[in-house]
């Protein structure tokens, strides 16, 4: 571990990417159309690449991914939310990729341990955001059914979005400014998609920064159980 690296920030950002990549990987073979299999896998692979760089800044990537307990993960609760239907996956992508693009855009501009990664990753996440935006427009302004589903998805994930803007130790950005920019960007997409910007709170009793502190939602434990089972069954083995 390098002395200059802010462990908690690298872990938090690395876990975000790792967990979301895993969730997107669950789509393999189940995407609504074959072209989308390729698109979702591209995004998952970008995120996994980012996760590996970030976790390696902290320690051994596999030990961190496979041998930590649930309470030691620092990812946002947003990214661990189950895929749900395609609308839920797209809403999650829209919220997270907009955040990631703004954050990495800022990190790329300032000298720091994340500048190199951020400069590369910001191009990847720009594409993720575009993908999410394109689908938000089509589902929001598609059929009555898709409008209904997209609307429900945006609503139900809204309460997980506040956590994104709680300051991360060692990440020197204007978090309030970022939150405003995020809201503006997401609102613009939702308006164009004929969707309402959800009015509810952006956090609840359990979501006020809970993921960043190691408190997660029920489905996350199962996700980890599946992800870690094989690795943990063979202690010390190499793969």
């Amino acid at each position: 571990m390098t002395a200059t690296v802010h462990t908690s920030a690298a872990l938090a950002l690395g876990d975000d990417a790792l967990v979301l990549s895993h969730r997107l990987g669950e789509w393999a073979g189940l995407a609504p159309v074959l072209e989308e299999e390729v698109a979702l896998a591209n995004i998952a692979l970008d995120l996994l690449g980012q996760a590996r760089v970030l976790l390696s800044m902290v320690g051994n990537e596999d030990e961190l991914a496979y041998l930590r307990e649930e309470r030691a993960f620092r990812n946002l609760q947003l990214v661990e939310q189950p895929n749900g239907d395609f609308a839920h996956t797209i809403a999650r992508q829209l919220y997270f990729s907009t955040y990631q693009r703004l954050l990495y855009g800022r990190l790329a501009e300032v000298q720091g341990e994340f500048a190199g990664l951020a400069a590369k990753a910001v191009k990847e996440v720009a594409y993720h955001q575009d993908h999410a935006e394109q689908w938000t427009l089509r589902l929001g302004d598609g059929t009555d059914l898709s409008h209904e589903r997209m609307s429900r998805a945006c609503e139900s994930l809204w309460r997980f979005t506040g956590e994104m803007f709680l300051p991360l130790e060692g990440v020197d950005v204007d978090w309030t400014g970022m939150k405003d920019a995020w809201l503006e960007s997401v609102s613009d997409v939702l308006h164009r998609a004929t969707l309402e910007v959800p009015q509810g709170p952006q956090s609840g009793a359990w979501t006020a920064g809970a993921g960043r502190q190691g408190l997660h939602t029920e489905s996350f434990g199962r996700m980890l159980a599946e992800m870690q089972h094989l690795h943990r069954s063979h202690p010390g083995a190499t793969w």
Binding site: G25, L48, D62, Y66, M227, L230, H231, A237, W239
Partner: peptide, 9 residues
């Protein structure tokens, strides 16, 4: 995919 035993794999 969801059970691959290393991130590289």
């Amino acid at each position: 995919i969801t059970r691959a035993p290393s991130l590289r794999r």
